[in-house]
Write a protein that binds this DNA or RNA. Structure first.
Lengths: 200, 200
DNA sequence: ACCTGAACACCGTTCAAGT
DNA sequence: ACCTGAACACCGTTCAAGT
């Protein structure tokens, strides 16, 4: 036993995250455990704690990679041009991601940090970067100087879209096709309201 | 050891759920365990499995009481009269409940059934009953015969409101007061869209 | 310096054995 | 019939001991 040095700390860290992603993708949070991750990369439980602070830290890092992948996917949607069409494109990509990576996506919301703890800044920035996509799509509707209002409306749309996907995923009360229809209604109707408001 | 008969099965079941509610309220899903529940009501782990199928069943039953409490709270809002005002009242109650019972409310979405399993009908009915409140508030906007459309719009609003509360609760990117502002924007803007659509 | 693996305090679940 | 508690297979976390 003892030192092996087959892999650098960075390599081990990357291997652990890749293993975690695979488990998350197939089995969700239920299948994820510190022991299983290290077992799958050929190390023992002790090594886990040289890579991560604790299990919550691992889940946070894993969620970080999920937010990155979600951003890459959503950022591929063209967001210039007419805001409503841009939002529909963005939503279609978001919905597509939640379907392609349903279990991994769910961990973003299933996992709750212990009582006092707040998400680290690097994590919050990943979320803000996603919100930024919605802001970009909304830009034509807001004159310069109204960034606060734009952020507010972006939050409403982002949260609402999340809610639609989330309840479909959790409650399964709705057929899969309906998610698109709900999202379409949200964007279309909300933008009618937004336009009449900003035109005033 | 062996038989005690201090309590009937029904009493034990009720005691276990009350204990689960208290733990959920204070510590959320993290604090909840089958062993702890039976310990707190003065019984041993074996008894747990004479009351519930398994741990998932307990959480489902607990969530059932949460949905009931949420319904009682929301149903107290007057839903007749002007739809927008009715929705604002309903949303205010919903938001109030998520604050007053934040940890217990979160378990509704933190908990995920194992892969093949679907929620039992009694559970789905509790959710539909809540959706029904939104439908009631929307009734003046839809002529008889448009119940399908009304349900669709109710779903959008319900899911969106859920999303706003959920992301505030999970991400904490938003100050608490903002939840009201986001919900207000959602309802106001969405209803502008709904009205112009139904007037066509 | 790095990694191990035993130890500790927990889990969910099952079931033979007691009253 | 009802309840127990040991047994099993897992957890997360810590840390003295090996190389």
């Amino acid at each position: 036993m003892g030192r092996r040095s087959d892999h650098s700390r960075e390599e081990l860290y990357a291997m652990a995250l890749v293993a975690a992603q695979a488990i998350a993708e197939e089995e969700g949070l239920r299948g994820l455990s510190a022991r299983r991750i290290t077992r799958e990369i050929g190390y023992t439980i002790g090594t886990f704690y040289s890579l991560f602070d604790n299990f919550d830290d691992l889940v946070l890092r894993l969620n970080g990679t999920t937010l990155d992948a979600l951003y890459e996917d959503c950022a591929a949607a063209p967001l210039d041009g007419e805001p409503e069409a841009a939002l529909h494109r963005l939503a279609a990509r978001y919905i597509g991601f939640t379907r392609a990576h349903a279990k991994r996506w769910r961990i973003l919301f299933e996992h709750r940090l212990p009582d006092g703890e707040v998400q680290p800044d690097w994590y919050r920035e990943k979320i803000f970067r996603l919100l930024g996509l919605v802001e970009t799509a909304l830009t034509p509707l807001f004159p310069p100087g109204q960034e606060v209002e734009r952020l507010h409306e972006a939050r409403v749309l982002w949260s609402s879209l999340h809610g639609i996907c989330s309840l479909e995923c959790v409650d399964k009360l709705v057929s899969t096709e309906t998610v698109e229809a709900l999202s379409d209604s949200l964007i279309t109707n909300y933008l009618v309201g937004l336009r009449t408001e900003t035109e005033k």
